[in-house]
Amino acid sequence: MAVKEQNYSGCQLTWLVLLRVAIGWHFLYEGIIKIINPSWTSLAYLMDSKGFMAGFFTTLAENDGVLKIVDFCNEWGLFLIGLGLVLGIFTKLSAYAGILLVSLYYLSHPPFLGIEFAFPTEGNYLIVDKNLVEILALAVTIVFPTGRIIGLDRFFRINK
């Protein structure tokens, strides 16, 4: 169960807010970079999918219309989730959406034994990769929410 927000010590709150804002920054920047590059597409990433859900992801990529929708949702999803986490607005909803989105990345490129990707990775991963860590970190921000203390969600609480 979520801890009551007002019970955090100053130190706890500081690190929780930093964690939330850092994840938000990561999402937001990824989203903006994709939005401002008109030729960006997830085609390559999806086509490189491996593992038990690879068929689903490559099907998305093979249809031009579907791919456009996927690209749009990904770009603006990243942007809005990032903005939500940084500003602390709809913080919990943003975190849930973030978990959903990153889970899709994780499932399309699962770091399981025996799977090799064309996409270069900058580290070595077995089951746990940075996507999974980010998913878990987002889960932490859900059970230790901070948006209503430091963030625009504070105004919703006050107005209730």
Partner: peptide
């Protein structure tokens, strides 16, 4: 409803978004 401290805390992370926009 809203105090000065609320405004400060509610908007505390807005400058971070600004910093990111500057970086972009």
């Amino acid at each position: 409803k809203v105090g000065r401290r609320d405004i400060l805390k509610g908007l505390a992370t807005v400058p971070i978004a600004g910093a990111l926009a500057y970086g972009v």
